[in-house]
């Protein structure tokens, strides 16, 4: 099933992300940046840079409008993303390669043992290793928290027709806390994993091109390499 491209110069490229997934990533970049730029000045309302940033957007009210529109686009994207997963499972056509498994626990222990010099080599990782899975699952859970708390804050009157009022300040704190967590994970984890880490520096372009060389796949995702090209002779 995996698409393989053989170039004339002999390099073999393996497809990692379909065109749809690459577009999804671009969408997440755009909405995440817009949401951060218009959201954090509201979280840090007392800081000097906040009002400067808000003025750049044309003021608080305009920035809020941008924030809400970006949030709605993000939410629609999330619904489409989940719908595709559900459809994929129902039709039996999707492999949940980003779902954490028990092997990931073994991989974590194995990797830590390697870091401390107790194992000679890193484990053979599947299509996505536990570090990538952590980020994806974090995005999914964080995204759900942001969407739900954001909707509560967008429609507080409607919500309190059915649910207790305490939910609103709770949603405000959750929206604010989850935003900070997501931002820190992106700044620390994603920036390291996809840009700063010596293995990929200055940038891992796979998510944009969609392809990885066969050699790179063998080195970074040995198990996936075995699955695609068969076990090593």
């Amino acid at each position: 099933m995996t698409k393989i491209v053989r170039r004339e110069d002999g390099t073999v490229l393996v497809e990692r992300f379909s065109v749809f997934r690459r577009i999804e990533h671009l969408f997440v970049i755009a909405t995440f940046v817009a949401l951060c730029l218009t959201g954090f000045p509201q979280k840090y309302y007392a800081a000097g840079w906040s009002s400067a940033l808000l003025k750049f957007f044309g003021g608080l009210d305009t920035a809020r409008a941008v924030h809400r529109i970006s949030g709605i686009i993000f939410s629609i994207h999330a619904v489409i993303h989940f719908a595709i997963i559900v459809m994929g499972i129902l039709l039996g056509k999707m492999q949940l390669t980003l779902l954490p498994t028990s092997k990931d626990i073994h991989d974590i222990i194995h990797t830590l043992r390697y870091y401390f010099g107790k194992a000679k080599a890193l484990p053979l990782y599947p299509k996505f290793h536990y570090r990538q899975k952590f980020e994806y699952i974090g995005l999914i859970f964080g995204g759900v928290v942001m969407i739900v708390s954001g909707l509560i804050l967008l429609y507080p009157v409607l919500i309190t027709h059915y649910l207790p009022g305490q939910l609103i300040p709770a949603a405000r704190i959750a929206h604010s806390g989850e935003a900070l967590l997501a931002f820190l994970v992106i700044i620390i984890w994603h920036l390291y994993g996809s840009h700063i880490s010596p293995e990929v520096f200055p940038m891992d372009k796979t998510i944009f091109t969609g392809y990885m060389t066969k050699e790179e796949l063998e080195e970074k995702h040995g198990l996936e390499h075995e699955r695609v090209f068969g076990p090593k002779p």
Partner: peptide, 14 residues
């Protein structure tokens, strides 16, 4: 300002 606010809405303020 918040038309149709129910008592639970007021409880949002601690």
């Amino acid at each position: 300002c918040h038309q149709g606010a129910m008592p639970a809405f007021g409880d949002a303020w601690l």
